[in-house]
Amino acid sequence: MSEAIPYTVDIRPDTGLNNVKLGMWLFLASEVMLFGALFAGYILLRVGSEDWPAGNSILNVPLATLNTIVLITSSVTMVMSWASLLRKSFDKYRLYMGATVLLVVVFLVIKTIEYSAKFDHHLYPSTSTFLAIYFTLTALHGLHVIGGMAVNAYLWGPGAKMWRSAPEQFTNRVEAAGLFWHFVDLVWIFLFPVLYLL
């Protein structure tokens, strides 16, 4: 059995981590640098600009507020789904994870409404640097949302079979997906005030 890779499920005593969790934290560190670079770009462009518009004069703040609430709620249901697995309650896991996926769909629908309203008013990324950074940041965040949704939907649906064969590993997977999801949520928490309010 020397082929099995150690610490994929159980925790290495001297580091206190399993491979998956450490890998996820490292991945998130690189994501911080990705979004950090875009935020840094935002600051540099804004500082160098003579007429930077106020976000709320162009963007729809009430819709974005609603979306913020939706995303934060989805983070809560994500934690609840993981906690349900820890308490061996698979049915509740299904319920909470299902709710998480549904909330993500709601977020994306609202985002689509926002985007199409902009296009209807002939506001495109090429219109101004503010809109360029708005579309780039929210689209990149949106891609992360879609990625997270795909993983969560998989863990809710076909991936959940693993609960029977390897419950501990499955719980770890949900935890790792949760870490990613909270990060996506956190990015939005930064995006919302920076783009819409400031």
């Binding site: 560190a29 640098m33 990705l34 670079a37 770009g41 990324p125 360029a132 950074i133 579309f135 780039t136």
Partner: peptide, 25 residues
């Protein structure tokens, strides 16, 4: 590699936007 490449990825997205979506980053 982990921490230095993502800013280039961000920059590559922005340049891609400049070229494809006609933005002015």
């Amino acid at each position: 590699l982990l921490l230095a490449f993502p800013p280039l990825e961000a920059a590559a997205f922005m340049q891609l936007m400049d070229r494809v979506a006609n933005t002015s980053f």
